[in-house]
């Protein structure tokens, strides 16, 4: 039921918005077309402005992934994850989550192909994927578009959130799906 409501809202949100906003604006005597053009002009600038920041962060993450450093990292901290009861196979997906969305999706798909989507590992990595966003991508793009270089506590706070999300995912999957 809940699932149906949410997917109904997410399908209709945009068409309704595109319908209602111009109509209400017209009622308020806004010159809708001119106003739209005025706003839309900014699109190009914003997209171009984030390029250097995107290149910097994605190149570093891409190099890191290609070097095989992730596998090394996994061996280092696997004793820790054994301690909290996380299956070793799921660890790369957890570590990849803040770095790369497509990377995590790749790992998750691979694991689900191997263990089956309805295995505990399959359900766990599925939950990992939705539990947080790609923190470094968001930080690079959002701060990049306004030229912020000193990010202060944004990165540690984001990573604390990621960690909390991963731990919560493990906890709730153990309760709901058992292992």
């Amino acid at each position: 039921m809940f699932e149906k409501i949410i997917s109904f809202v997410s399908i209709w949100a945009i068409p309704v918005l595109l319908f209602i906003v111009p109509l209400l604006a017209l009622k308020k005597k806004v010159k809708v077309y001119e106003s739209f053009i005025d706003g839309a002009k900014g699109g190009f600038d914003v997209a171009v402005k984030i390029i250097p920041y995107l290149v910097a962060i994605l190149v570093a993450i891409g190099m890191f992934r290609a070097s095989g450093a992730m596998e090394l990292f996994v061996t280092f901290i696997s004793p820790l994850t054994d301690f909290v009861g996380m299956p070793a196979e799921a660890l790369p997906a957890a570590l990849m989550r803040p770095l790369s969305g497509s990377g995590t999706l790749g790992i998750a798909t691979e694991l689900m192909t191997e263990h089956g989507p309805d295995s505990f590992i399959g359900r766990l990595v599925s939950t990992f994927f939705g539990s947080t966003e790609t923190t470094f991508y968001v930080i690079a793009v959002y701060f990049g578009c306004v030229g912020i270089k000193k990010t202060r506590h944004a990165v540690p706070a984001g990573l604390i959130g990621d960690f909390a999300g991963l731990m919560a995912a493990l906890f709730i999957c153990k309760i709901v799906f058992g292992s």
Binding site: S35, I37, G42, G43
Partner: peptide
């Protein structure tokens, strides 16, 4: 997509 939403957003703002 940026241009589309910034356009709509501007309309919404002026209204």
């Amino acid at each position: 997509i940026m241009a589309l939403w910034l356009g709509i957003m501007n309309v919404a703002q002026e209204a």
